[in-house]
Design a protein around this nucleic acid. Structure first.
Lengths: 147, 147
DNA sequence: TATTAAAATAGAAACGGTTTCTATTTATAA
DNA sequence: TTATAAATAGAAACCGTTTCTATTTTAATA
């Protein structure tokens, strides 16, 4: 399956292939930064014409439930989504300046598991880890500004 | 300073000692689980009578900004706060069943730092880690239910 | 290809947690 | 005690998100 074969992806997820779902996937896959439903909606409107904002919300939520898009944790608590092709368990590095999202292939789940079961006698069901900072490009820009 | 000396705590934080702030701290410190502003407000009303919900929001936000209370990450994205006496950097274990919050004295910031700087050439500014699961008591209850 | 049932969508409307606004009250310093 | 800046109450607004219903579309089947 081609990595841009959204129709095949939707079938695999058990979702009907609709023009709106295809369009949402296409827009999401074309970004390397996170976006709000409203922003994605604007982008869709200029690309395919008519689409309802509630439809965008619903599709994003479906894709998030299937694990195809990830939610971003934001201080404003607004919804932000990011298309994540990486299927394995991993975490995200978020650039606070340009919104770029990059995968972090590191996870301390083993150590957390040990800490929780030994110290607390509890059981881990899931965990959330997000790293916020400046990406390579933005980090350089900041340094340049200081010089 | 006594650990229940909220007046001293507020002074230390550069906030005026008001009856409302004292009451909020008192309610928060008496819980070992997280709560929403609305829930805290209800608790305050039955304890001190009159207090405005916006006041509760504002005080919680002030205390969060000072690092005295922690925000909880919740799928519903509703605001939840937890009074956190532990001053050092740490993370929280959240019981998804009873809302109890416990400190986790483990953090992989060193490894994350290395991963981000080496692999991405980026700069870490902060990170969010929350562990969701079942606390000791709830874990036992669940096992009992299965037996 | 035509038919059909179930699923998906548009658009309007509602929703509700959170924030803003302004007059009033309160804490603290002088 | 007084003055002043900060804090609060209560009402209202706000706005991101969800719900509702009529209509359209998909995809399975004949």
């Amino acid at each position: 399956m081609n990595e841009d074969d959204f129709s095949g992806l939707l079938k695999k997820l058990g979702l009907k292939t609709t023009s709106k779902r295809m369009a949402v996937l296409s827009v999401l896959a074309g970004m390397d930064s996170y976006a709000s439903p409203e922003e994605i909606w604007q982008s869709l409107k200029s690309r395919i014409g008519t689409i309802g904002l509630p439809t965008v919300y619903r599709i994003l939520e479906e894709l998030a439930a299937k694990g195809v898009v990830a939610r971003i944790i934001h201080p404003s608590r607004q919804l932000y989504y990011y298309y994540c092709g990486n299927a394995g368990h991993h975490h995200h590095f978020i650039c606070v300046s340009c919104r770029r999202v990059q995968d972090i292939n590191f996870c301390a789940s083993k150590e957390i598991e040990v800490e929780v079961s030994r110290r607390l006698n509890g059981r881990v069901l899931s965990h959330v880890l997000q790293i916020d900072g400046l990406c390579r490009a933005c980090s350089r820009k900041k340094k340049g500004a200081n010089a």
